[in-house]
Design a protein around this nucleic acid. Structure first.
Length: 505
RNA sequence: GGCCCGUUCGUCUAGCGGCUAGGACGCCAGAUUUUCAUUCUGGUAGCAGGGGUUCGAUUCCCCUACGGGCUACCA
């Protein structure tokens, strides 16, 4: 079987992390089965169109390494891939529905319907446009053929609604959820074609999926309630034989509290909800994974494991491994809470796999932002010393700043604990020992300093910690003598002198 | 309110009638690092409740509770 799947976002804003996961699952499924991954822009609601959203989606995929086989940017055999450019296709299909009796014209205005809804609500009832009410409303089922023709000729605004068959049990198959049954009595006659001449999601989606020969529809669970409509639409068009298989993915939920993950959660709890930084046309800024120091492979890995598992104990995956191992059978049914802590851990794991040179590039960025010019070899060396403690690439500077600048101040707590007046002459001596040691290497320096400590009956910890304070400014960092070696004798001597002169006891 | 989906440690999950219910994140403790972080070792903690079916239910069925989604001329 030829696998053809699609990701069909609507460009109403930045692509949400949940959308990214849906795209990822589609992509992985396509790759796993040697199929085709299609990107289709569902922009049938021009009132919600947001400038830049389309580009954002493409940029996000590029960053993540998700490649598109067919779409509005790369073309394909089913051009165009932007629904706003396919209006004529939908119109002819909508008319087909009218002719076959599966659809009907409705002339009720939004205001009229609103009034009816309000009235019902005040009586404690809920209004639905369905087989029990459509005979009382203004549509081609209640109006005479002449009246309908007149209104149409007049150019009166109309919509086309789906006429659900009465009291029919629709039995559907979902790859993830199994058999789902719904009675048409509980469904309302959805608008398929709007008065603005464009279809709603339901019709555009079904028509395009059919025309584009989609084999599997993999989408979020929020679409499950409209599956009966879609299934019946395939039947109405006579496409049941080639109807795609459906898989409705569980939703990604808030880390805490109720409901599905939203932009506000990210702001509140301090993690990104979008892959890339986004600035809305109004100037509102939303943080992105990329800008927050996440690696694309970590974001992919984390998202893949949110709702899917390989059935083994492997947790760290490359995109290639996921392409090989992914399958819909192992997607879970229940919604998954997003866990920022685990996201951080995934990033740490993937940073571990990066080369010193790759990470050094990130540090070079920070350095140039501070007008510090450093030899690349030196930066690589520094990275090799501090990389283990990284959760995010942008933390490099915090962990390594003392390799590039002298300490300007000294951590008071550490001073109190580690800096004693009787240590000062020893620090001066140690400074000279460091400067005089050849070869100038961590090991030999450590040896020389240790010898000094021993012959003077001092504690290693006392000297080492004081020395670290002088060189770093606090009590953090990699191996002390690796620092001594890396920053060089001159810097060591200068820093020790500076510490002696500037630390108040 | 109606309809649909779901429910295993705090979180992500394994389990597909018989397991001391496994792993990961987090948390706690210890070891290493004479610093901090990393790393390593160990610990903590779970089958929502009630009925069935069965020799036997985390696993199958029903009910309840809880959670989630949908209920627009939005997707």
């Amino acid at each position: 079987m030829t696998v053809r799947v699609r990701f069909a976002p609507s460009p109403t804003g930045p692509l949400h992390i949940g959308g990214v996961r849906t795209a990822l699952f589609n992509y992985l499924f396509a790759r796993k089965h040697g199929g085709t991954f299609i990107l289709r822009i569902e922009d049938t609601d021009q009132t919600r169109y947001v400038e830049g959203a389309e580009d954002y989606i493409a940029d996000a995929f590029r960053w993540l390494g998700i490649t598109i086989d067919e779409g509005h940017l790369v073309g394909g055999q089913h051009d165009p891939y932007r629904q706003s450019e396919r209006a004529d296709i939908y119109l002819s299909h909508a008319n087909q529905l009218i002719e076959s009796g599966w659809g009907y014209y409705a002339f009720d205005t939004p205001e009229e319907l609103d009034a009816i809804r309000k009235k019902n609500e005040s009586e404690g009832k809920v209004f639905t446009y369905d087989s029990t009410t459509r005979s009382t409303l203004k549509n081609s089922l209640t109006l005479s053929a002449d009246e309908v023709k007149t209104m149409l000729d007049n150019g009166d605004p109309y919509v086309i609604r789906f006429k659900f068959p009465e009291n029919r049990e629709v039995v559907m198959q979902d790859i993830i959820r199994g058999t789902v049954k719904v009675n048409t009595q509980t469904l309302d006659d959805k608008v398929l074609f709007k008065s603005d001449g464009l279809p709603t999601y339901h019709m555009a989606n079904v028509v395009d999926d059919h025309l584009m020969e989609i084999s599997h529809v993999i989408r979020g669970e929020e679409w499950l309630p409209s599956l009966p409509l879609h299934v019946l639409l395939y039947e109405a068009f006579g496409w049941t034989d080639t109807m795609p298989q459906f898989a409705h993915l569980p939703l990604i939920l808030k880390p805490e509290g109720k409901g599905k993950l939203s932009k506000r959660d990210g702001d509140k709890l301090g993690f990104p909800v979008f892959p890339l930084l986004w600035t809305s046309p109004e100037g509102e800024v939303s943080r992105g994974y990329r800008e927050d120091g996440y690696l694309p492979e970590a974001v992919i890995n984390m998202l893949a494991l949110l709702g899917w598992n390989p059935g083994t104990e492997q947790e760290i995956f490359s995109l290639e491994e996921l392409c090989q191992q992914f399958d819909l059978e192992r997607v879970s049914k229940s919604g998954a809470r997003f866990d920022p802590d685990k996201a951080k851990w995934f990033n740490h794991q993937h940073i571990t796999k990066k080369s010193d040179e790759f990470l050094a590039l990130s540090l070079v960025d920070s350095l140039s932002g501070k007008d510090i010019i450093a030899n690349f070899e030196y930066v690589v060396k520094v990275v090799s010393l501090v990389r283990d403690r990284l959760n995010f690439t942008h933390e490099l500077w915090d962990h390594a700043h003392f390799f590039f600048e002298n300490p300007a101040e000294f951590d008071e707590k550490i001073v109190k604990k580690r800096w004693k007046s009787d240590l000062i002459p020893h620090m001066q001596n140690v400074s000279q020992i460091i400067a005089a040691t050849t070869p100038y290497q961590a090991e030999s320096i450590k040896e020389a300093v240790s010898k000094y400590i021993e012959t003077n009956g001092l504690g290693f910890g006392a000297i080492a910690n004081a020395l670290r304070l002088a060189l770093v400014g606090s009590s953090v960092g990699p191996d002390l003598f690796a620092i001594v070696e890396t920053i060089g004798a001159e810097a060591c001597v200068n820093r020790i002198n500076f510490a002696i002169e500037n630390i108040d006891i």
